[in-house]
């Protein structure tokens, strides 16, 4: 799972039949350098299927790839990013982060 911040929401007008009841968020992943300094996401935006009700500016764990479709088994959904958890607290160890980034 990648760490991402919710920056928006998307409503689909003519979705694939299996996606009709879905709630879609626009989330932006974040690198370690940004996470340890500005907390401003700097990745590429992705559209995430959300069951947990993540709001704007909420930090979420995004599961990607085929694992994003696993919660819907045996049904099948054409999605590749799924909001697996809402992050309440992100603790970064300064020393370990400095070591990795140096």
């Amino acid at each position: 799972m990648r760490i991402a911040q919710v920056i928006g929401q998307i409503t689909l007008s003519r979705p694939h039949p299996t996606l009709t009841s879905g709630r879609f968020l626009i989330a932006m992943p974040i690198s370690l350098r940004a996470l340890s300094t500005t907390m401003q996401p700097d990745g590429e935006e992705i559209i995430v299927w959300d069951d947990l009700g993540a709001g704007l500016t909420c930090w979420i764990g995004v599961s990607e790839g085929v694992e994003a479709t696993m919660p819907f088994r045996p049904d099948r959904k054409p999605i590749d990013a799924y909001c697996a958890c809402l992050l309440d607290h992100l603790y970064l160890d300064e020393q370990a982060t400095r070591e990795v980034l140096s």
Partner: peptide, 20 residues
Amino acid sequence: RIVGHAVSHIYHPSLRGWRL
């Protein structure tokens, strides 16, 4: 390298009890 941990109260049921 492990650089920290995360705390989550709302998550997919399969993550219950797991260290993140």
